[in-house]
Structure formats: structure tokens, C-alpha cells
Amino acid sequence: MININENLCDFCGTCVSVCPVDCIELFEAKLKINNEKCIACNLCVDICPLGVLEVEDEE
């Protein structure tokens, strides 16, 4: 699971551009991650210029 800190997000779409499975959707001030499609590669976490995305530890 990836956590989105919407307060920090600039909705720039950089995460969308690196997602290999196209599971991130962005429209105006909304960012959605489809967790069913997500393969937890975390590239979006790495590329985000602002540190908006965070990996949530799965117990």
C-alpha cells in the first residue's frame, strides 16, 4: 500500500509517468492509486519531487 499525503502533493503527475502498470490516476487536485493493480515497485515513491508518497508497512 502506498500512502498519499495530499497536503504536500502538487498534483504534477511525475508518479504517473513512471508507474509501470498505470495504476495511478490524476485529475486536478485528486491523486488516486489503484491498489489492486499496484505491484509495489515503489518507483512513484522514489521519483516524487516532494516526498508525498510513502510505503505503508504491511503487517
Binding site: T14, S17, P20, D46, C48, P49, L50
Partner: peptide
């Protein structure tokens, strides 16, 4: 196939 490789994109502010 338009998804970027990490070596081909700049993360900018």
C-alpha cells in the same frame, strides 16, 4: 509503451 525508465526522467522542483 510510454512509462519512463528512472534513468530517463528528472524529478524537479
Amino acid at each position: 509503451k510510454t512509462a519512463f525508465n528512472m534513468c530517463d526522467i528528472g524529478s524537479c522542483v
